[in-house]
Amino acid sequence: MVVPALVLFFTFHTYPAIQGIFYSFTDYKGYGVWDFVGLKNYLNVFQDGRALSAYGFTFQFAIVSTVLVNIISLLIAIGLNANIKFRKTLRATYFLPYILSVLIVGYIFKFMFTHLLPQIGDALGIGFLSSNILGNPDLAWIGIVIVAVWQSTAFNTLLYLAGLSTIDQQVYEAADIDGAGSWAKFWKITFPLVAPFFTINMVVAMKNFLMAFDQIVALTGGGPGQVTESISLLIYRGGFQGGEFAYQSANAVIYFIVIVAISIIQLRVLERREVK
């Protein structure tokens, strides 16, 4: 029963990955003949200003989004875990954004940033709302962060809710008897006991944000200019539209190594904290 799944996985995942690694050592343009060029493509990536700029934007976006989505998700999860009315309904409502298509959400927010918010800003005389932030080279990335965090919060909240459900309420009752305040209970009880879920959320969120593509395509297309061009978008454009198949394959291999390295470092650091 496992063989069909293995065949499909190898055909549509492993084989294309191996093929991409192979072509990264050539000058293949996606068509025609090719020759081996060794490590030339890999060396050129580190000298490519556009690629370095894309790496810088991607890391900035991923770090800010990862921090924000985990803070917001944990706060929402704590609120939903409390004894409040319509708790189950609210959980379903908060999870709805994760179900929606990323592209559809991106286009809706693009309309809001481009037309709706500026109109509201003009009507109310609010200066910072009157302009389209997606057209501002200094602020466009903030719009992408808002959309990415809004949609990703749902999944992270679900994981934190699972973690909070494993905490025995008697622990909080004992803390109340000892006179512990809300902050002390969070820092000494809640956060340490959900630490494994915090680790999972941090690693998964960082990986997903590093691979950001759909939100950027829908909101800015990498613009204005190339200030919001992520590595994934650069690889797609150069590899499939710019005749740089081999070069961007090398870029993709480097990026894969970077993501794996960051994930391993996160796991090592955060798991060490769990032990403490």
Rank of each mutant, 00 (worst) to 15 (best):
Y255C: 02
T14Q: 14
G239R: 13
F61M: 07
F57A: 05
D214A: 06
K88S: 15
V217K: 11
Y31W: 10
Y42I: 11
L139H: 11
L210H: 11
F209L: 01
T93R: 08
F10G: 12
Q215C: 04
T89I: 12
I257T: 11
V145F: 02
I254P: 01
W141T: 02
G221H: 05
G125F: 05
W34G: 10
V7W: 08
I167T: 05
D48Q: 11
L8A: 14
F245K: 01
P137N: 10
G179Y: 05
T153K: 01
V227C: 04
R50M: 10
A250H: 11
A174M: 12
G56E: 06
G49A: 11
S101V: 03
Y160I: 04
L234W: 13
R87D: 09
G181C: 05
V275E: 10
F113Y: 00
I146E: 06
Y255L: 02
V253K: 01
A218R: 02
G135V: 00
L52R: 14
I200Y: 07
V203C: 06
N201E: 03
A5S: 14
S73W: 04
E271K: 15
G38D: 12
A218F: 01
Y42D: 13
F59G: 07
L158S: 04
K188Q: 13
N132T: 08
I259Y: 00
I133K: 07
N251S: 10
L210W: 08
F36M: 13
Y172R: 07
Q119D: 14
T166H: 09
G79Q: 04
V269M: 09
P16W: 04
Q19H: 08
I262H: 02
Y15F: 14
A140L: 00
V67C: 13
D168P: 07
R268K: 15
H115I: 15
T157K: 05
Y94N: 01
F12M: 10
I104G: 05
G179M: 04
S73L: 02
N208P: 00
V227H: 00
R91L: 07
L161I: 00
I189L: 07
T66N: 15
E229V: 03
G38A: 13
G79W: 08
V102G: 00
Q248I: 03
I200Q: 04
I84K: 13
P4K: 01
V2M: 14
G222S: 05
S165Q: 14
R273Q: 13
L100R: 07
N251Y: 12
P4C: 05
A180L: 08
S65W: 02
I200A: 07
G49E: 13
L80I: 11
A154E: 08
L8P: 03
L129K: 06
L233D: 12
G135Q: 08
N83E: 15
V37G: 04
W34R: 14
T166W: 00
F59K: 11
F36W: 15
F36N: 08
G106Q: 12
D27R: 03
F213R: 04
G127W: 02
S263Y: 06
